[in-house]
């Protein structure tokens, strides 16, 4: 990479940071418990909109992994979720009714909060329907992973988003508040992913899975990106570029090995395809607040109307991280 391009990326990084400064005015503090944050704590950042039903399990899952503080932005929920969050002892909450789309799909808000609170912490940026799975997650807390990454001088941890779905029509996947979503939607595609490299940012671009197979069969280039880097040892100079798909400076995107080896990596189980998604897709389509004119949601709504079933006889049922590691959907790397 030449000097010129690296300079341009630097400018871009600065631009996102300045933008997040500007966008911070859209946030109003709802509950501030940030003085509880200890120097070594793992922090979680997320933007939430009408996800009340998912919140109890989401918080429990990440508390059990060892997340010590949640810094959340509530984007205009009207389902009582914000009030529920405000009552939690380890949540700091900001609210905004500004446009999600014009805040770079929430990333401007998150970037600002990270800049202010996350410097020097390991941070996890996930959506409320994304659940991190990493090698040995059943026996070792997240802190074991971040300590190991620290000892190995690794600053970022790569994952792939795995879309989970139910067997049968999506309407039948009734999810109850507090329930493990993967009891309802335990199936996934184990081996139909395609990868290419984004040379500008140095990250991998992964597509495929059930969303490409069912909803983007005819225009695979439009299928959503599945590469995510949710866990980063944050520095206030860092910034996410596009959702959590890639970061600047670009060295953080090199979470894969180029010389044949495997770097330790995890997966984000995506509990998107539950009953509520049909409603949500219609709502989001009207709201037009998502990426690429909400093309994705349009495809879902059309798919649901065709009563498309995602499950097929080659679908795999989720058991544990070891299964994912054997299937090659994540790797222990040299962490043993």
């Amino acid at each position: 990479m030449g000097f010129w391009q690296s300079y341009r990326l630097r400018l871009q990084r600065k631009r996102w940071r300045i933008r997040s400064l500007r966008k911070r005015r859209e946030l109003s503090l709802f509950v501030d418990r940030t003085e509880q944050i200890e120097p070594d704590d793992i922090l979680l950042f997320s933007t939430i909109r009408n996800e009340d039903i998912r919140l109890p399990y989401f918080l429990k899952y990440y508390r059990d992994l060892g997340v010590r503080h949640f810094l959340l932005v509530d984007n205009d929920s009207d389902d009582g979720g914000a009030e529920y969050l405000a009552r939690q002892p380890d949540v700091s909450l900001w609210r905004t009714s500004a446009s999600y789309k014009r805040a770079r799909f929430g990333m401007d808000w998150i970037t600002w909060l990270q800049r202010k609170y996350a410097h020097g912490h390991w941070t996890l940026v996930v959506d409320p329907d994304e659940f991190l799975v990493y090698p040995f997650c059943d026996t070792r807390p997240l802190k074991a992973l971040t300590d190991w990454l620290d000892a190995s001088s690794i600053r970022s941890f790569g994952t792939m988003l795995i879309d989970m779905y139910p067997k049968g029509p999506i309407e039948s996947a009734e999810y109850e508040r507090g329930q493990d979503p993967f009891e309802v939607a335990p199936w996934f595609d184990s081996g139909n992913y395609t990868i290419s490299r984004n040379h500008k940012f140095g990250n991998l671009w992964i597509q495929g899975g059930p969303r490409a197979r069912v909803f983007f069969r005819d225009e695979p280039e439009r299928a959503p990106a599945l590469n995510k880097i949710p866990l980063v040892k944050w520095d206030r100079r860092f910034t996410y570029v596009h959702s959590t798909h890639m970061l600047l400076p670009r060295g953080l995107n090199l979470v894969y090995d180029e010389w044949g080896g495997e770097k330790v990596s995890g997966a984000l189980l995506h509990a998107k395809f539950l009953q509520s998604v049909t409603e949500k897709a219609r709502e989001e389509l009207e709201r037009k607040q998502h990426f690429a004119n909400s093309k994705e949601y349009k495809a879902y709504v059309e798919g649901f109307e065709r009563r498309e079933e995602i499950w097929c006889k080659w679908s795999e049922k989720y058991i544990n991280w070891r299964q994912l590691e054997i299937l090659g959907l994540m790797s222990k790397g040299n962490w043993a």
Partner: peptide
């Protein structure tokens, strides 16, 4: 166990392309 881990980190599993392994051309082993 540990030498397997090192081997996985250096040589990886042949024919696998994933978020932690994307070898350059000719390095796929």
């Amino acid at each position: 166990i540990f030498s397997r881990a090192v081997d996985r980190r250096i040589r990886g599993r042949s024919g696998l392309f994933m978020q932690g392994r994307f070898p350059n051309w000719g390095w796929e082993n």
